[in-house]
């Protein structure tokens, strides 16, 4: 139950929504599936005076454009993605990532745009503050950081936990943004500021309108893994996504995107490991070495009961498996199981 009153707007187009958001200023928030905003309003991490619901706007089905780019409306439900033949054929890593989000009801409600625009998380502020942690933290506009009492940098070391963002970044996807100045496109990675206080780089009145996934290059392979303690109904301890291409020899890495989510304020690209990988022959030993390098390159925040050292230990192993899967797929030797979902 949300214990304060707010106004609701239900525009019919994203342009109208954008105009409403701009008019209402910082006191307005956009609502798509609601699975992130409404719990946050209930615990008053955010307290918008106006909610601009996109509930009246129907997304179009994902389409493949003439250049092979897959265009997905931001309002596309995660459940639609996991079940879409086009997505499973053209960008199976995104279908897999969507499949790994929370539980079925959340996937039925939550949208791809909403999943990308979700707030960062922290055990301390993701709860009601009736009597626990009464003084507001930095993120709530206060002067304290509960998990890091020595944090005097007026920042917030909360964690951005989207399951789809690492996959989209590894796929080299872009987002399309509707705003007061019209429509703009930018890589998904540039959507994130890296600040836990304001994790998204969106201007006033800006709304995600679409996600654009470029066509896969020849000999492209992907690997994805969400580490968590439970199956389903949970955010990740670490989310690993890799997209790589091989040279014609089927062994040498021509280029790679390696992303880890749910360990920092934004999804992290492991550029040093990517560079080390490029030009390397991806045999078993090299893959293990690269995974170890990835675990070293990432500097995870301890979060949700997981220590920094264990998150690294876990990444080291699962990243190796993810890289092996990606390499096998790029070679075209991926098995039926890891070609699709592995439940």
């Amino acid at each position: 139950m949300i214990l304060y009153d707010f106004d609701l707007e239900r525009p019919n187009t994203l342009e109208e929504a954008s105009a409403l958001l701009r008019d209402k200023g910082a006191d307005a928030r956009v609502l798509a599936g609601g699975t992130d905003l409404l719990p946050n309003m209930r615990v008053e991490v955010v307290r918008p005076a106006t909610v601009v619901s996109l509930g009246a706007i129907t997304p179009r089905d994902p389409v493949r454009e003439t250049d092979g780019t897959v265009r997905i409306d931001a309002l596309t439900r995660l459940a639609t993605l996991e079940g879409s033949d086009l997505i499973r054929a053209a960008c199976p890593m995104l279908a897999e990532a969507a499949h790994r989000v929370a539980g079925n009801q959340i996937r039925q409600m939550g949208t791809l745009g909403g999943n990308l625009c979700q707030e960062t998380r922290c055990l301390y502020y993701n709860q009601k503050h009736d009597y626990q942690f009464k003084a507001p933290c930095y993120k709530r506009g206060g002067e304290v950081c509960y998990p890091y009492p020595n944090n005097d940098r007026d920042t917030c070391w909360s964690v951005y936990m989207s399951d789809t963002a690492p996959a989209l970044i590894a796929l080299g996807a872009e987002v399309e943004i509707v705003g007061p100045g019209g429509t703009r496109r930018q890589p998904v990675e540039q959507l994130f500021t890296g600040s836990g206080l304001t994790p998204h780089a969106l201007g006033a009145g800006e709304i995600l309108s679409a996600v654009l996934v470029p066509p896969a290059e020849p000999r492209f392979g992907w690997g994805y893994h969400k580490s968590s303690r439970r199956g389903g109904l949970e955010f990740g301890m670490a989310v690993m996504a890799v997209g790589l291409t091989l040279d014609g020899d089927g062994a040498t890495c021509r280029g790679a995107r390696m992303v880890i989510g749910a360990v920092r304020e934004k999804p992290i690209r492991l550029t040093a490991t990517e560079q080390a990988m490029t030009g390397a022959k991806l045999d078993e030993a090299k893959i293990a070495e690269l995974a170890a390098a990835a675990a070293k390159e990432i500097n995870p925040l301890p979060h949700h009961g997981f220590t920094k050292s264990y998150i690294r230990d876990n990444i080291k192993i699962h990243m190796r498996r993810v890289l092996s899967e990606a390499t096998a797929r790029a070679r075209g030797t991926g098995t039926a199981e890891n070609g699709g979902h592995h439940d």
Binding site: R10, G34, S53, A79, N104, Q105, I106, Q108, M109
Partner: peptide, 27 residues
């Protein structure tokens, strides 16, 4: 739970299972 974490409030909205504790009635 009112937190969208237990599923006890699941209903079918246009035949899709959704959490009614995280759905605005006005929508």
């Amino acid at each position: 739970c009112e937190q969208g974490t237990c599923g006890a409030c699941t209903v079918l909205l246009d035949e899709r299972p959704v959490l009614s504790c995280m759905t605005l009635a006005a929508d």
